[in-house]
């Protein structure tokens, strides 16, 4: 046996607790910044490692997922219908998210198509995805990271790993006023509290922060 591939999910996935399941309402207080936070729970998160020049990688991704392997830095590629997103993470790393119920099948399919030079790691329980949306979503990000999240520099689909407050986040822009944050499980509580705190400010003073 070269790799241990195992199904991590029990027969009734509903018994699971997402990282922010304990947090209660995720929404910032009324009257604060115009922002909505949702946790996208029980998704499959797969890390794919390998040489980006190896043709079988792009082929396997295409055949199995119907996605183009993003080879340019900070790019992502999405199949909205299937709920699959593949993000460039580093020159030899990608992150695939997909509906939890497809996870085992996709992992096994990739493993079958890729030889020992490639690594596939299930991190579905180790991180979670947040969607941040609303008029002030960008503003909250600007309180949290020194990265330039202005649309000019950070268009739809662009994916970056940023220092976020005192933690780290993988950030992707979904639209002009919505963002996807992927956070480590153990930091999720801190990041949610941070966002909540940053957003619980009377927004009137800041509402027109364009830069």
């Amino acid at each position: 046996m070269k790799h241990l591939s195992m199904n991590h999910l029990p027969d009734s996935p509903r018994e699971g607790h997402s990282p922010l399941a304990q947090a209660g309402s995720l929404q910032p207080p009324v009257g604060g910044l115009a922002l909505s936070i949702t946790e996208k729970v029980m998704l499959g998160h797969l890390v794919i490692r390998g040489d980006s020049d190896a043709p079988e990688l792009a082929r396997a991704i295409h055949d199995l997922l119907g996605l183009r392997l993003p080879s340019a830095p900070l790019q992502s590629c999405e199949d909205e219908h299937q709920g699959r997103v593949l993000r460039w993470v580093s020159p030899d790393e990608w992150l695939l998210t997909l509906p939890g119920e497809n996870l085992t099948e996709v992992e096994a399919g990739l493993r079958a198509r890729l030889d020992e030079r490639f690594a596939i790691v299930d991190v579905s329980g180790g991180q979670t995805m947040l969607h941040l949306s609303g008029e002030d979503a960008e503003l909250v990000l600007r309180k949290s990271t020194s990265y330039d999240v202005h649309l000019v520099n950070f268009p739809e689909g662009k994916t970056v790993i940023i220092t976020f407050a005192r933690s780290q986040v993988m950030l992707r822009r979904l639209s002009a006023d919505s963002f996807e944050l992927i956070v480590r499980r153990s930091f999720a509580d801190y990041i949610w509290r941070w966002i909540h705190d940053a957003a619980s400010e009377d927004g009137s003073a800041l509402r027109k922060g364009d830069n």
């Binding site: 005192r166 153990s186 509290r193």
Partner: peptide, 17 residues
């Protein structure tokens, strides 16, 4: 904002509650 409970990230396991 890096003060009080946000002074430094606090990491919890899934069993915290």
């Amino acid at each position: 904002r890096d003060c009080g409970e946000l002074f430094d990230p606090v990491r919890y396991t899934a069993i915290q509650s």
